[in-house]
């Protein structure tokens, strides 16, 4: 399960980075609160993964200093699009953890995947993207 947890950690770190970009392109209180709450959630999952991997005595790759964004983000529309992209990606990173874990590890992975999928739905609604749901969140 260590490679899958390592991949989930990489996704959470990328999400934390992305929310920095997303945040500066949002201005309404609702949008900004949404982004801050999401970023905090990703920090929580990141900390959990760092701790769990340390328990398992697994090394993980250091997070890169910067990331290549999938597209340029210069306004609210771009920020919302990136937020949807990030949450879908985080859900995709957690899904492979499910088959390689049991018990509480699997329950945590499912909760992390589900919360990312729910945030993706909230961002789709804010971006007026339809439909707001996917049939199989986490499936690439």
């Amino acid at each position: 399960m260590n490679p899958q947890l390592g991949a989930a950690l990489a996704a959470e770190e990328a999400a934390i980075y992305a929310y920095g970009i997303i945040g500066v392109n949002l201005s309404t209180t609702g949008d900004v609160t949404e982004a801050r709450t999401a970023e905090q959630a990703h920090r929580g999952r990141r900390d959990y993964l760092v701790g769990r991997l340390a328990q398992l005595q697994a090394s993980s790759a250091p997070s890169p200093a910067g990331y290549q964004l999938p597209f340029e983000v210069t306004d609210r529309a771009g920020a919302l699009k990136l937020a949807i992209h990030v949450e879908d990606g985080v859900a995709q990173a957690w899904r492979p953890v499910l088959p390689v874990t049991t018990g509480n590890d699997r329950a945590t992975a499912l909760a992390a995947m589900t919360e990312a999928a729910v945030r993706a739905t909230r961002w789709r609604r804010l971006a007026a993207v339809s439909p707001v749901t996917l049939p199989f969140p986490g499936r690439p």
């Binding site: 088959p99 999928a117 749901t133």
Partner: peptide, 14 residues
């Protein structure tokens, strides 16, 4: 596990 997990997550998004 992955399929059931995605269905659980989908229901949460609904």
């Amino acid at each position: 596990a992955a399929l059931i997990g995605s269905i659980a997550a989908s229901r949460a998004t609904h």
